[in-house]
């Protein structure tokens, strides 16, 4: 007796769908639903308030600052970590002495838990005797800088950690993709007399397209998601200079216990991510060359 095709398909999809629905789709919809009510307290049950929670967000200067900070954070970390990952992958892909050691060195930050990384960097950034200040003094002759304690540098300092943490992880994907490029293509190009730069631009980079798209989507998601180091190091300070959407959601939800407002914030974050993902897949996806 043959199973109908559709039953077979649903059986295969079932377990994954069930998990996704239970832990992603249902909570997301529930959050959007809760955002339409006020925060319940023991004395005041939740009442329907329509879009009031979103209106309150629009009037909240910290929300706008967090949104702006997050856009800067994404713009700073995404291209930087992709470029660095590609550069590192190209380097350790070549014939190089101590290649394995280099690969491990680049990959190590990825393995460390973010909380440990944050505590490590807290001391790197310490003014005067921290490692960063010692380096800038030695190489550039700068005086002490309060990296995470001043408005101008705090967000940049947080971005540097994110890039440092992520580039090694993305490098692994590039490395795998580089090794999957058939050598015959590269040999053919060099037989035609193409320079190394030209081979990179016209052969290697296009063939890495699908990997770049994958990495770009992940990097963007991470730029909204990976905020542990900020909670440890600055708690969004000084004066909200490092507040991102996610840290603000956590603060509103679990420090102020304003769950309705936090739900509305989550709604905004979901919308932002959905728009970016749609743009990436439609614009970049169209130009990506799949074999």
């Amino acid at each position: 007796m043959r199973m109908p095709r559709f039953l077979h398909a649903w059986l295969m999809l079932g377990p994954a769908l069930l998990l996704l629905a239970a832990f992603t789709h249902v909570p997301a919809l529930a959050t959007l639903w809760h955002a339409l009510f006020s925060t319940p307290t023991p004395r005041r049950p939740a009442v329907f308030v329509g879009l009031n929670n979103y209106a309150a967000l629009a009037e909240d200067p910290i929300f706008w600052q967090a949104l702006w900070n997050n856009l800067l954070y994404a713009l700073g970390t995404v291209p930087m970590s992709i470029a660095l990952a590609l550069a590192m992958a190209l380097w350790v892909n070549g014939r190089l002495r101590g290649r394995t050691a280099m690969r491990i060195a680049f990959f190590t930050p990825t393995v460390l838990p973010m909380i440990a990384v944050a505590n490590l960097w807290l001391f790197f950034y310490t003014p005067d005797y921290g490692m960063i200040d010692r380096l800038t003094r030695l190489l550039l002759g700068w005086g002490p800088t309060n990296w995470i304690g001043s408005q101008e540098t705090a967000l940049g300092a947080m971005m540097a950690i994110a890039v440092w943490k992520e580039a090694g992880f993305f490098m692994i994907f590039y490395l795998a993709a580089l090794q999957a490029i058939p050598p015959s293509l590269l040999e053919a190009a060099s037989l035609e007399g193409a320079s190394r730069g030209r081979i990179f631009w016209r052969v290697t980079l296009p063939l890495l397209g699908p990997t770049t798209l994958f990495i770009a989507v992940n990097a963007v998601i991470n730029s909204f998601r990976l905020v542990d180091h900020i909670l440890v190091m600055t708690q969004g300070g000084p004066d909200n200079a490092t507040a991102l959407l996610m840290t603000y959601i956590y603060e509103t939800g679990f420090r102020f216990w304003d769950t309705a407002q936090a739900s509305a914030l989550t709604g905004v974050l979901l919308a932002v991510l959905a728009v970016i993902a749609a743009l990436q897949f439609s614009l970049l996806g169209r130009r990506t060359h799949y074999r």
Partner: peptide, 18 residues
Amino acid sequence: PTGIVEWGTTPRDFFERK
């Protein structure tokens, strides 16, 4: 020091005679 002084590293600053 100017700017924000980190709570966590303040004892260390003291030990380092900063």
